[in-house]
Amino acid sequence: MDWQRWHDRYDAPESPLAWRLRAVQDRIGAALDTAPPGPLRVISLCAGQGRDLLGVLPTHPRREDVRARLVELDPANVVEARRTATALGLPGVEAVAADAGLLDHCADLVPADLVLLCGVFGNITAEEDIERTVEVCTRLCAPGARVIWTRHRKAPDQVPRICGLFERWGFVREWTTPAVHVQSVTVHRFTATPAPLRPGTRVFDFVGYDRLPA
């Protein structure tokens, strides 16, 4: 899979992924609007070119408050994210070329106020890795933090199960897209007490949707 060319789908305005990107950006804007005053920490795992966050921050009144880390394995996408952040005058946004499944890359930004898991759950195994990823959000999030996550609704539809996992770990669902959309976007707010992030924690292996078993 050429993960840089994959982003071309965002440029087709009527594509499901372009629709998903707009929905994610709307939810990011809403999360920043309602975040408490002061510095804001944002973590994006499997961030790609960072189009979700970088499409919101330039015109948002909280842009100067945000310190963000975009963790992405594909080096070409990291270069593009860095170029965009620089061009937009966003020195608080850092893109790193690293395995997002290893959370040591985020340790200095924990607990975060916003965690983006966009394009994660559809590219990892549907059992243990998904459950570990949901559980570790209790170690990434500050009280009241939002997690914005995506998952397609192709059979078998994993969205209801993932929602249940979040709610089991102390998250309250604030918003989700109607089931008629093949690409689902959901927002959960953390209402429990953060657990410590353990050094060396591996959460998932990014397999890629094209290599996952049917």
Score class of each variant (00 low, 15 high):
Pro199Arg: 14
Pro156Asn: 15
Thr59Pro: 02
Pro194Met: 12
Gly89Ile: 09
Ile124Ala: 00
Arg211Pro: 01
Val203Thr: 05
Asp65Leu: 11
Ala195Trp: 02
Val185Tyr: 11
Cys141Val: 05
Pro213Cys: 14
Ala31Leu: 12
Glu64Ser: 12
Thr84Ser: 10
Val147Trp: 05
Pro13Lys: 00
Met1Ala: 14
His60Gln: 05
Val207Gly: 00
Asp99Asn: 05
Thr186Phe: 14
Val79Cys: 00
Glu80Gly: 00
Gly144Ala: 08
Asp11Arg: 09
Gln158Ala: 07
Arg83Tyr: 10
Pro37Gln: 07
Ala47Ile: 05
Leu117Phe: 05
Leu88Lys: 08
Trp19Arg: 08
Val180Pro: 07
Ala142Phe: 04
Glu14Ile: 00
Leu45Ile: 09
Asp129Tyr: 03
Val110Asn: 06
Leu53Ser: 06
Cys46Trp: 02
His188Ala: 15
Trp175Thr: 14
Ala145Ile: 12
Gly101His: 07
Val120Gly: 09
Leu57Gln: 00
Leu40Tyr: 05
Gly48Tyr: 04
Leu109Gln: 06
Thr86Val: 15
Asn123His: 08
Pro111Cys: 10
Ile28Pro: 07
Asp104Arg: 10
Cys106Thr: 04
Thr177Val: 09
Thr201Glu: 11
Gly50Cys: 09
Ile28Arg: 02
Pro75Ser: 11
Arg139His: 14
Arg189Asn: 04
Arg63Met: 08
Arg62Ala: 14
Ile130His: 04
Arg69Gln: 03
